[in-house]
Amino acid sequence: MSDISRIHLLHAAMVVALVICWFVLPVYHAGNLARIMVFAIYAMGYNLLFGYTGLLSLGHALFFGAGMYGLGLAMHLGGVFAGPGILAGLITALVVSGVVGFLALRTSGVAFMIVTLMFAQAGYLTVLLFGTYTRGDEGFVLPQATRALMGIDLSDAQNRYFAALILFGIVLFFIGWLVRTPFGRCLVAIRENEERARMLGYDITRHKLIAVILSGTISGLSGAAYCLLFGSAQAAFAAVPYSIFPLLYVLLGGMGTTIGPFVGTLFMFYLIDWSGGNMMVAGVVLVALALFAPTGILGEIRRRFTPWLP
């Protein structure tokens, strides 16, 4: 079997497995899985920039928050329906990531980390500044009745699960496709050796900018989905820890792999859940990862068993 069909098969198998999960898992774990899929979208968006393009951002909470507040405020204050709400979330994230990308990409390395961190911090403070509308840290809830798409009540557990799964599947296949296109391969080339890619005649800045925008918009989709499916928005989601989380998920799962972000999100969720919400566990895992498995779970699997893994 060719690598490409293997990859398609893997992604399809994963979606099918997730469909089955809904029917076989206990309610609690099925509920968790819906959350995990939403955050895995965030991690996949982050992975596109970090894992594939090699740009370490510490400010993705800004994009997640842009999606969340884009949808949240449009529905909460603008009174729009969920469909246009999602669109508003995506557009907000797109614009924000475009601006941030345009500016931040003038830097690289540690300076890029700091600039993205600064922009995210400014974004977080802006949510507080406009507390009259956003209600700052406290945030707001979307009434259950408004959280419906084409007549489907998204606050219902099953509908929510499958809505999350559909979004997750779309993003998974999109990224699986994207990284195999010439554009995607160029991103990897930039990660591996930026100078060489430049020498080969690629427009590095343009590629990177598109990568930031795609990554930011996917992250925004996750934020919008969270707000819609779980019904609330708070400034905390735009704060520093939420910039660290996708980094953690991606590193744990395996950077530069298509399903690594999901695996990382899943593991991290259950690690924290199992430890009673204690972040100490996250710390120990990170140190252990850096020491023993710098390429993450899927990176290790790929190295040992399945070199074709996307």
Partner: peptide, 14 residues
């Protein structure tokens, strides 16, 4: 903390 209340209340209702 009220931001936790806001984050949790929709789930409690559902």
């Amino acid at each position: 903390f009220s931001h936790v209340v806001y984050g949790s209340a929709p789930r409690a209702g559902e």
